[in-house]
Amino acid sequence: MNVFRLAGDMTHLLSIIILLLKIRATKSCTGISLKTQELYVIVFLTRYLDLFTKYISFYNTTMKLVFLGTSISIVWYMRYHKVVKQTYNKDQDTFRHYFLAIPCFLLALLIHHEFTVIEVLWTFSIYLEAVAILPQLVLLQRSRNIDNLTGNYVFLLGAYRALYLVNWVYRYFTENHLVRWIPWLSGLVQTTLYADFFYYYIKSWKNNEKLQLPA
Protein backbone atom coordinates (compact mmCIF):
# COMPACT_ATOMS: atom_id res chain seq x y z
CA MET A 1 0.00 0.00 0.00
CA ASN A 2 1.37 3.39 -0.94
CA VAL A 3 1.19 6.64 0.99
CA PHE A 4 -1.51 8.16 -1.25
CA ARG A 5 -3.83 5.22 -0.73
CA LEU A 6 -3.25 5.30 3.03
CA ALA A 7 -3.81 9.07 3.11
CA GLY A 8 -7.02 8.53 1.12
CA ASP A 9 -8.30 5.89 3.53
CA MET A 10 -7.43 8.00 6.55
CA THR A 11 -9.15 11.05 5.04
CA HIS A 12 -12.23 8.93 4.39
CA LEU A 13 -12.16 7.59 7.94
CA LEU A 14 -11.63 11.06 9.39
CA SER A 15 -14.60 12.44 7.43
CA ILE A 16 -16.84 9.77 8.96
CA ILE A 17 -15.43 10.39 12.46
CA ILE A 18 -16.15 14.12 12.08
CA LEU A 19 -19.72 13.39 11.00
CA LEU A 20 -20.31 11.00 13.89
CA LEU A 21 -18.73 13.51 16.27
CA LYS A 22 -21.05 16.24 15.02
CA ILE A 23 -24.10 14.01 15.46
CA ARG A 24 -23.14 12.66 18.88
CA ALA A 25 -21.72 15.84 20.41
CA THR A 26 -24.24 18.35 19.10
CA LYS A 27 -27.17 15.88 18.95
CA SER A 28 -27.89 17.39 15.57
CA CYS A 29 -27.70 16.34 11.95
CA THR A 30 -28.62 19.68 10.36
CA GLY A 31 -27.16 20.06 6.90
CA ILE A 32 -26.58 16.32 6.51
CA SER A 33 -28.42 14.48 3.74
CA LEU A 34 -29.99 11.22 4.85
CA LYS A 35 -30.33 10.29 1.17
CA THR A 36 -26.56 10.45 0.71
CA GLN A 37 -25.95 8.53 3.94
CA GLU A 38 -28.37 5.78 2.89
CA LEU A 39 -26.68 5.55 -0.49
CA TYR A 40 -23.34 5.04 1.26
CA VAL A 41 -24.82 2.13 3.23
CA ILE A 42 -25.88 0.58 -0.09
CA VAL A 43 -22.42 1.31 -1.53
CA PHE A 44 -20.63 -0.46 1.33
CA LEU A 45 -23.07 -3.37 1.50
CA THR A 46 -22.73 -4.13 -2.20
CA ARG A 47 -18.98 -3.53 -2.37
CA TYR A 48 -17.91 -5.50 0.66
CA LEU A 49 -19.68 -8.77 -0.16
CA ASP A 50 -16.20 -10.17 -0.64
CA LEU A 51 -15.76 -10.03 3.14
CA PHE A 52 -17.25 -13.52 3.04
CA THR A 53 -15.34 -14.86 0.07
CA LYS A 54 -11.87 -13.36 0.09
CA TYR A 55 -9.36 -12.41 2.77
CA ILE A 56 -6.96 -9.65 1.77
CA SER A 57 -5.48 -8.32 5.00
CA PHE A 58 -6.36 -7.51 8.57
CA TYR A 59 -6.30 -3.81 7.65
CA ASN A 60 -8.68 -4.39 4.74
CA THR A 61 -11.19 -6.44 6.74
CA THR A 62 -11.11 -4.05 9.71
CA MET A 63 -11.64 -0.96 7.56
CA LYS A 64 -14.51 -2.60 5.68
CA LEU A 65 -16.24 -3.47 8.95
CA VAL A 66 -15.64 0.05 10.28
CA PHE A 67 -17.12 1.67 7.15
CA LEU A 68 -20.14 -0.63 7.27
CA GLY A 69 -20.69 -0.12 11.00
CA THR A 70 -20.27 3.66 10.99
CA SER A 71 -22.42 4.25 7.90
CA ILE A 72 -25.24 2.13 9.33
CA SER A 73 -25.03 3.89 12.70
CA ILE A 74 -25.17 7.34 11.04
CA VAL A 75 -28.37 6.34 9.24
CA TRP A 76 -29.71 4.90 12.49
CA TYR A 77 -29.08 8.18 14.33
CA MET A 78 -30.72 10.25 11.60
CA ARG A 79 -33.79 8.02 11.31
CA TYR A 80 -34.41 6.79 14.85
CA HIS A 81 -32.56 8.77 17.52
CA LYS A 82 -35.30 10.73 19.28
CA VAL A 83 -33.37 14.02 19.46
CA VAL A 84 -31.19 13.79 16.35
CA LYS A 85 -34.03 12.87 13.97
CA GLN A 86 -35.86 16.10 14.82
CA THR A 87 -32.95 18.15 13.49
CA TYR A 88 -33.01 16.46 10.08
CA ASN A 89 -33.82 18.88 7.23
CA LYS A 90 -36.36 16.58 5.67
CA ASP A 91 -38.09 19.22 3.54
CA GLN A 92 -34.84 20.29 1.90
CA ASP A 93 -33.44 16.79 1.38
CA THR A 94 -35.70 15.88 -1.51
CA PHE A 95 -33.35 14.18 -3.96
CA ARG A 96 -34.77 10.82 -5.07
CA HIS A 97 -32.54 7.79 -4.38
CA TYR A 98 -33.69 5.82 -7.35
CA PHE A 99 -32.74 8.55 -9.82
CA LEU A 100 -29.18 7.66 -8.92
CA ALA A 101 -29.39 3.99 -7.94
CA ILE A 102 -31.34 2.63 -10.94
CA PRO A 103 -29.14 4.16 -13.68
CA CYS A 104 -26.03 3.01 -11.79
CA PHE A 105 -27.39 -0.51 -11.56
CA LEU A 106 -28.28 -0.60 -15.27
CA LEU A 107 -24.83 0.74 -16.13
CA ALA A 108 -23.23 -1.95 -13.97
CA LEU A 109 -25.26 -4.59 -15.83
CA LEU A 110 -23.95 -3.22 -19.13
CA ILE A 111 -20.38 -2.26 -18.27
CA HIS A 112 -18.49 -4.53 -15.90
CA HIS A 113 -15.37 -6.63 -15.81
CA GLU A 114 -17.00 -10.00 -15.36
CA PHE A 115 -20.65 -11.02 -15.36
CA THR A 116 -20.93 -12.48 -11.87
CA VAL A 117 -23.13 -11.34 -8.98
CA ILE A 118 -20.21 -10.12 -6.86
CA GLU A 119 -18.51 -8.36 -9.76
CA VAL A 120 -21.67 -6.60 -11.02
CA LEU A 121 -22.58 -5.48 -7.49
CA TRP A 122 -19.01 -4.28 -6.91
CA THR A 123 -19.20 -2.28 -10.16
CA PHE A 124 -22.61 -0.91 -9.14
CA SER A 125 -21.09 0.26 -5.83
CA ILE A 126 -18.30 2.07 -7.66
CA TYR A 127 -20.78 3.88 -9.95
CA LEU A 128 -23.13 4.67 -7.08
CA GLU A 129 -20.36 6.01 -4.86
CA ALA A 130 -19.37 8.42 -7.63
CA VAL A 131 -22.77 10.16 -7.54
CA ALA A 132 -23.94 9.47 -3.98
CA ILE A 133 -22.76 12.91 -2.83
CA LEU A 134 -25.26 14.72 -5.08
CA PRO A 135 -28.16 14.84 -2.55
CA GLN A 136 -25.68 16.20 0.02
CA LEU A 137 -24.42 18.90 -2.33
CA VAL A 138 -27.98 19.91 -3.22
CA LEU A 139 -28.83 20.15 0.49
CA LEU A 140 -25.73 22.28 1.17
CA GLN A 141 -26.72 24.63 -1.60
CA ARG A 142 -30.15 25.06 -0.03
CA SER A 143 -28.71 25.58 3.47
CA ARG A 144 -28.22 29.20 4.41
CA ASN A 145 -25.99 28.15 7.25
CA ILE A 146 -23.30 25.50 6.80
CA ASP A 147 -21.58 24.72 10.09
CA ASN A 148 -17.85 24.02 10.19
CA LEU A 149 -18.16 20.32 10.95
CA THR A 150 -20.46 19.75 7.98
CA GLY A 151 -18.16 21.75 5.69
CA ASN A 152 -15.11 19.81 6.87
CA TYR A 153 -16.96 16.52 6.51
CA VAL A 154 -17.79 17.15 2.85
CA PHE A 155 -14.30 18.49 2.13
CA LEU A 156 -12.58 15.40 3.56
CA LEU A 157 -15.02 13.12 1.78
CA GLY A 158 -14.06 14.74 -1.53
CA ALA A 159 -10.35 14.77 -0.72
CA TYR A 160 -10.43 11.03 -0.13
CA ARG A 161 -11.30 10.17 -3.73
CA ALA A 162 -8.87 12.77 -5.06
CA LEU A 163 -6.09 11.02 -3.09
CA TYR A 164 -7.23 7.69 -4.55
CA LEU A 165 -6.78 9.18 -8.03
CA VAL A 166 -3.15 9.97 -7.20
CA ASN A 167 -2.80 6.45 -5.76
CA TRP A 168 -4.03 4.95 -9.04
CA VAL A 169 -1.54 6.96 -11.08
CA TYR A 170 1.22 5.85 -8.70
CA ARG A 171 0.12 2.19 -8.88
CA TYR A 172 -0.04 2.32 -12.66
CA PHE A 173 3.62 3.27 -12.87
CA THR A 174 4.96 1.20 -9.98
CA GLU A 175 2.94 -1.99 -10.43
CA ASN A 176 2.28 -3.86 -13.65
CA HIS A 177 0.76 -1.01 -15.64
CA LEU A 178 -2.66 -2.46 -15.10
CA VAL A 179 -5.54 -0.50 -16.54
CA ARG A 180 -8.63 -0.22 -14.35
CA TRP A 181 -11.06 1.91 -16.30
CA ILE A 182 -14.15 1.39 -14.13
CA PRO A 183 -12.76 2.73 -10.83
CA TRP A 184 -10.53 5.32 -12.54
CA LEU A 185 -13.25 7.00 -14.56
CA SER A 186 -15.80 6.73 -11.76
CA GLY A 187 -13.30 8.19 -9.30
CA LEU A 188 -12.60 11.03 -11.71
CA VAL A 189 -16.32 11.78 -12.02
CA GLN A 190 -16.68 11.57 -8.24
CA THR A 191 -13.84 14.03 -7.61
CA THR A 192 -15.07 16.41 -10.32
CA LEU A 193 -18.46 16.67 -8.64
CA TYR A 194 -16.69 18.26 -5.67
CA ALA A 195 -14.80 20.84 -7.75
CA ASP A 196 -17.31 23.60 -7.15
CA PHE A 197 -17.53 22.82 -3.43
CA PHE A 198 -13.72 22.74 -3.10
CA TYR A 199 -13.54 26.17 -4.72
CA TYR A 200 -15.92 27.80 -2.23
CA TYR A 201 -14.54 25.85 0.72
CA ILE A 202 -10.97 27.03 0.08
CA LYS A 203 -12.13 30.56 -0.68
CA SER A 204 -14.04 30.82 2.60
CA TRP A 205 -11.08 29.35 4.46
CA LYS A 206 -8.61 31.82 2.92
CA ASN A 207 -10.84 34.82 3.58
CA ASN A 208 -11.77 33.55 7.02
CA GLU A 209 -15.46 33.75 6.14
CA LYS A 210 -18.37 31.48 6.75
CA LEU A 211 -18.86 28.85 4.05
CA GLN A 212 -21.87 29.47 1.83
CA LEU A 213 -22.57 28.04 -1.59
CA PRO A 214 -24.23 30.26 -4.19
CA ALA A 215 -27.76 29.12 -4.98
Binding site: H12, K64, H113, E119, Y164, N176, L178, V179, W181, P183
Partner: peptide, 10 residues
Protein backbone atom coordinates in the same frame (compact mmCIF):
# COMPACT_ATOMS: atom_id res chain seq x y z
CA UNK B 1 -4.93 -3.38 -22.57
CA UNK B 2 -5.03 -5.45 -19.45
CA UNK B 3 -7.94 -5.06 -17.09
CA UNK B 4 -7.43 -5.68 -13.42
CA UNK B 5 -10.03 -7.28 -11.19
CA UNK B 6 -7.99 -7.30 -8.01
CA UNK B 7 -10.00 -5.71 -5.21
CA UNK B 8 -7.43 -4.80 -2.60
CA UNK B 9 -8.79 -1.28 -2.17
CA UNK B 10 -11.67 -0.04 -0.07
Amino acid sequence: LQQDSVKDEL
